[in-house]
Structure formats: structure tokens, C-alpha cells
Design a protein around this nucleic acid. Structure first.
Length: 350
DNA sequence: TAGGCGTGGGG
DNA sequence: TCCCCAAGCCT
């Protein structure tokens, strides 16, 4: 009864038929039967969706496409505008590369995206996945689109026992078995929709899966076991201090962080180093500092306890001073939390 | 190449 | 509460 080997052709036809009936309606996706989505919108959505959920990315997609309707509009934007608009979405190197890519398209390609996988791959912030996704979805080119969803679907269909990340080359090879010139963009999106809605990481709904009969993982009795993973190291903890310095006009001291590294290129509060040991170092300026408490924040590779100090001060030339509402909107989440904590201090902004 | 790089939601 | 994780890319 259980299949011995997944039938590639059968899986393709079943999954494309399932996609025709069950494709998700997403803001960056053309309606069924409509013209293809513009490359700009495909690219923008793909970058926003890197390691990011659809609900989180969606309002940002609307904000960006409203404010910058074309790639040339985006290319002409100020760095600080784009970084501020990205605040809260995370992985801020994406925003720096987004702008660099828009400017490359506007400046070196006449405002038109390259229409080949190789051409796309040469752009900043466009890796193997995004190049393949844009080539297939926007330009209808056959491409092997492999993201986390596709890896999971392949690992289950073929019951791959090698754990990731070691299994990645094999999972990519398996995904490549399905790539043809027939509806390449729909195939890529069908596979990702299946992974997102049916072949989910936890509790997959195999009863709703159009290719369950071909799945060796299901036949094994425990499809959720795939893909196997190697255990990752524990996350270290760091401590630091952030400073909220307020002048008599309700503005706060801020800085633009260096382009490289954590929160690179983003607006930030004055801060100590964040270290494994107890926080050390002097305040950025001499003032009557008051401790407003602490906030907890978790980054990808460490967690952080940030003590928040507040003081009134005079505007000077050492810091940039920004109205608190404007700063709040443009700060990455860790600093927005710290600022919110500071506002519990009575009279700080009065 | 393995590690740096955010955030918020769900089990 | 904690752990996992979501359409990766860069160095």
C-alpha cells in the first residue's frame, strides 16, 4: 500500500492542482489568472519574508509599496528613511542591502530588474533562494527554489535521515528533480504554500495533503520527525546599560549605529558595551542619572538584560537630538522597549 | 564554513 | 516559562 518511491510526475500534477484550488491570497501575489506580479513587488516581498513570518512582514510590505511604489522611488530614498521604515522587522542588514540593491537596479540596470537567476544573484542581498524565487515567480523561468519549506517537504517525502544542515545538498538535489519549464512560479509557490499550511514543522495535517500517498515520511509513521536536526548550542546572556537623555523640549539623544554588526545602520540610544560580565563603563555624559528599571530582549545568538538610565540634560553638539515620538518609530525593538521603560519615570518628558 | 544577524507568535 | 521557529544572506 505504502509507496516505495515518490512519483515525481504524480506529485507535480497533484500539487499544482491543489495550488489552483488552495493558493493563499497574499498582498504580493497576483490573483489566479491575472498578470504576473511586478518584479519589484516579488523581490521586496521575498526579502521581507527571509526568516520572517507573513503576518509580521505584511504591514511593512504595504508601507513600503505605498511610500515607494517603484524600485526607482526606493533607490532615491534617504538611507535614514528606509532604515526607519524597516525598524521592528529585524535582520537590518536586509534593509541596507535592499537599498543597495534598489540603487544598483536603478543605476546599473535602468530601473529594470535582471530577468535571469544569475543576473539577480549578483545583486546585494539576493542569495540562491531569492534569485530563484524572483526568476521563477516574476519571470516564469525554471529555477530550483529551495527555502526552509521546500527542505522540510523534501525531507518528509523522501524520509531523509541525515540531519540538517548536513542534508542541505541532498535536499536541494531532490527538489531539483521536480523543476521543469511548466509553470515554474506556480510550482515554487505551491511547494511553499504546502509547507506553510499543510506540511507544517509541527503537527503536519497529512489528512489534507494532496501528495500523502507518495510520502515516505508519512509511511514511516512519524512524518513530523523530518527534517532531523542537530542540536544547537545554548544562547549566552549579556548585560548592558542604555541611556535616555531628555532635553527641555522633550527630545532625546540618539545616534546612528555603525553599518556593520548588530543593528547596523539603525538609529540607537547611547549604550554601554553589552558583555557577559557585569555592566561597566561611565555614562555618556555627566548628569543626574536615575535608574528606570530594566528590559529583557532576545537576539538570535544571545539574550540581553538592559538596564535603563534616565536624566534631563541640555542639548549639546555631542549627540543628535530627536523628538521622542520620531525616535520611538525609527528605533529597533530592543531600544524601543528601553525607551518605553524610561517613560515610566514621572516628569521625564514634562 | 560556521557563526553573526531580530523579532514576535505558538506549542 | 521556555523553546522553537519563519520564504536566508554574508563573511
Amino acid at each position: 500500500m505504502a509507496c516505495v518511491s515518490p512519483d515525481i510526475v504524480l506529485i507535480r500534477s497533484r500539487l499544482l492542482a491543489w495550488y489552483d484550488a488552495h493558493a493563499r491570497s497574499l498582498p504580493w501575489r497576483a490573483a489566479v489568472g491575472a498578470a504576473r506580479t511586478e518584479p519589484y513587488r516579488v523581490w521586496l516581498s521575498e526579502v521581507m519574508l527571509q526568516q520572517t513570518t507573513v503576518p509580521h512582514a505584511t504591514p511593512y510590505f504595504h508601507a513600503f509599496t505605498t511610500r515607494w511604489p517603484t524600485v526607482s522611488d526606493l533607490a532615491a530614498a534617504e538611507d535614514a528613511e528606509v532604515m526607519g521604515a524597516w525598524a521592528g522587522l529585524g535582520y537590518y542588514a536586509r534593509a541596507r542591502n535592499l537599498l543597495a540593491c534598489a540603487r544598483a537596479v536603478a543605476g546599473e540596470h535602468g530601473g529594470v530588474f535582471p530577468d535571469t537567476e544569475a543576473g539577480l544573484l549578483a545583486l546585494p542581498g539576493v542569495g540562491a533562494y531569492t534569485a530563484a524565487a524572483v526568476a521563477s515567480i516574476a519571470f516564469d523561468r525554471a529555477a530550483n527554489v529551495v527555502d526552509g519549506n521546500v527542505e522540510r517537504v523534501m525531507a518528509r517525502l523522501f524520509a531523509v535521515e541525515t540531519p540538517v544542515p548536513a542534508a542541505r545538498p541532498e535536499l536541494r538535489r531532490l527538489a531539483g528533480l521536480f523543476v521543469t519549464d511548466e509553470r515554474p512560479g506556480d510550482w515554487a509557490q505551491a511547494l511553499m504554500d504546502l509547507g506553510a499550511t499543510v506540511c507544517r514543522p509541527k503537527s503536519p495535517s497529512c489528512g489534507a495533503c494532496p501528495v500523502a500517498s507518495e510520502c515516505l515520511g508519512l509511511a514511516s509513521g512519524d512524518p513530523a520527525r523530518f527534517p532531523l536536526k542537530t542540536k544547537k548550542a545554548d544562547r549566552p546572556h549579556r548585560r548592558g546599560t542604555a541611556y535616555v537623555l531628555v532635553d527641555d523640549q522633550g527630545r532625546i539623544a540618539v545616534e546612528t549605529r555603525p553599518d556593520k554588526g548588530l543593528l547596523g545602520g539603525m538609529l540607537g540610544l547611547p549604550t554601554s558595551d553589552w558583555t557577559t560580565d557585569a555592566p561597566s563603563g561611565a555614562a555618556p555624559i555627566d548628569a543626574d542619572w536615575c535608574e528606570a528599571g530594566a528590559i529583557e530582549h532576545v537576539f538570535t545568538h544571545f539574550s540581553l538584560t538592559l538596564t535603563v538610565m534616565t536624566a534631563r540634560g541640555e542639548a549639546d553638539g555631542l549627540w543628535r537630538w530627536m523628538p521622542v515620538e520620531a525616535a520611538r518609530a525609527a528605533l529597533p525593538t530592543v531600544f524601543a522597549k528601553a525607551l518605553d521603560r524610561a517613560t515610566v519615570e514621572p516628569d521625564l518628558f514634562s
